[in-house]
Design a protein around this nucleic acid. Structure first.
Lengths: 145, 145
DNA sequence: TCAAACAGGACCACAGTGGTCCCATTTGGA
DNA sequence: TCCAAATGGGACCACTGTGGTCCTGTTTGA
């Protein structure tokens, strides 16, 4: 299903918080600031560091800092760091024939196109925009649309 | 993860095939025509009938027919019939507070916006386009992008 | 030297997916 | 009227991925 992972959602929250304040933060500090459970933050930061969105600082005064300006980090970047490449079907993913009806698939080129459109949407929102947003935005009851 | 279900992929294949030919088709016929396993087609057609994309005809000369012109069926329609509402996070889905950090969530309005963008992309491709597509489109090795 | 903090990975429960199978109901044609 | 064909509804199961938890090893500044 088309769904952002919970961890990804947390990642956005965490990164937004980090972009608003001090440079290097420990996992426990981030956890306290965001309300995301500590082990989960730890896990997340590893993925984000692997994905190049944050830099880790080991040792006694260690922690993590943002690797890029918030305006240079998109939602797509975050999703990919946590979940891997944005590929809406297996056949969009590089070179694997996974679904067994590949030759007959009328979606052959179309998923790729849709994938690009989705990717573009996600590229179009930066962490800076998100971090700049008021955190107590009134909820319009979200229609799934 | 952002991924179209396999069943949804099959659904598109099935519907495209149906839009190309005769009016009422049995599940076994569809299965033979598309290469999708019979029980899976059966399961799928139930969902598609529930979703209003096809009409069922019970009884000895029964089967399924398209409920709408192919141009009036979008990829989003198909996804929703098979998978349910397009909602990229739980909090986009109607009214449920699922992730526990809802009040602090800087993505509060943004997922909704992205959801709409994704929805629009999917609305923008009709079954007619897909059915009109040559089925042996050369593969450009799909980058996940 | 040592405590703080990250790095790496294993483990587990749960939810969802994809597939299979069975029984009940409907209905057109013989 | 009967029966075979076909859908309707649902249950079951194996597998995969997610989210969360926990442990050990390594790094490093004070």
């Amino acid at each position: 299903m088309i769904r952002i992972n919970r961890l990804t959602d947390y990642a956005v929250v965490v990164l937004a918080e980090m972009s608003r304040g001090s440079d290097v933060r420990t996992v426990s500090r981030i956890s306290a600031d965001t309300g995301v459970p500590l082990p989960t933050v730890a896990k997340l930061m590893k993925a984000l560091a692997h994905g190049g969105l944050v830099v880790s600082h080991r040792g006694a005064a260690g922690g993590y800092s943002l690797n890029r300006n918030a305006a240079a980090i998109s939602v797509a970047d975050i999703i990919e760091a946590v979940e891997g490449p944005i590929a809406i079907t297996a056949c969009v993913d590089d070179a694997d024939d996974q679904c067994g009806i590949e030759q007959l698939c009328p979606m052959h080129g179309h998923w790729s196109r849709i994938n690009q459109a989705i990717r573009r949407s996600l590229d179009g929102i930066s962490l800076a925009e998100i971090a700049a947003m008021p955190v107590f935005e009134p909820v319009a009851a979200g229609q799934p649309i």
